[in-house]
């Protein structure tokens, strides 16, 4: 096997499982692999910090909010139509209150009152026979 670190070689094959076999015969690659191990050990200095409490609670709150939005989402395009329907229903309810009495009925009452008033006036003038 040619040295992958030579010009024109494929150095990335040193990351493949068979690299140690070549490194056993190649001081340059042996050095590279040793340095790789040292570098990886240096990276071990950066250990993870504990996750802060409240992470899950905040996430579940976001999920619940998202679920609520998801329920409403299919209806959103229909919002203008629903609003128009609501206005229409309201108008119908308002207009279906107590029915107005017919005008003829009013005229009849007025006529009777006028007649009674005339009779009273004739009586007051002594132009009628007492009943």
């Amino acid at each position: 096997m040619e040295c992958p670190l030579e010009m024109g070689g494929r150095p990335e094959i040193l990351l493949e499982p068979g690299a140690e076999r070549h490194a056993a015969e190649c001081a340059r690659c042996r050095d590279w692999l040793r340095n790789l191990e040292t570098t990886r050990q240096a990276l071990d200095l950066w250990q993870p910090e504990p996750v802060r409490p409240g992470f899950d609670r905040a996430l579940w709150q976001r999920i619940e909010a998202e679920e609520a939005r998801r329920w409403w989402r299919p209806w959103r395009p229909l919002a203008p139509a629903l609003a128009a329907a609501a206005v229409l229903v309201g108008a119908v309810i308002l207009s279906s209150g107590p029915e107005p009495r017919p005008l003829a009925e009013f005229a009849e009452i007025e006529q009777i009152e006028q007649t009674l008033s005339d009779v009273q006036m004739l009586r007051d003038l002594g132009l009628t026979q007492p009943l």
Binding site: P11, E12, I13, E16, N35, T38, T39, A42
Partner: peptide, 12 residues
């Protein structure tokens, strides 16, 4: 592998 080789070289 190429990305990793270059990254480890830089880190080294």
């Amino acid at each position: 592998k190429s990305l990793l080789f270059r990254a480890y070289e830089t880190l080294r």
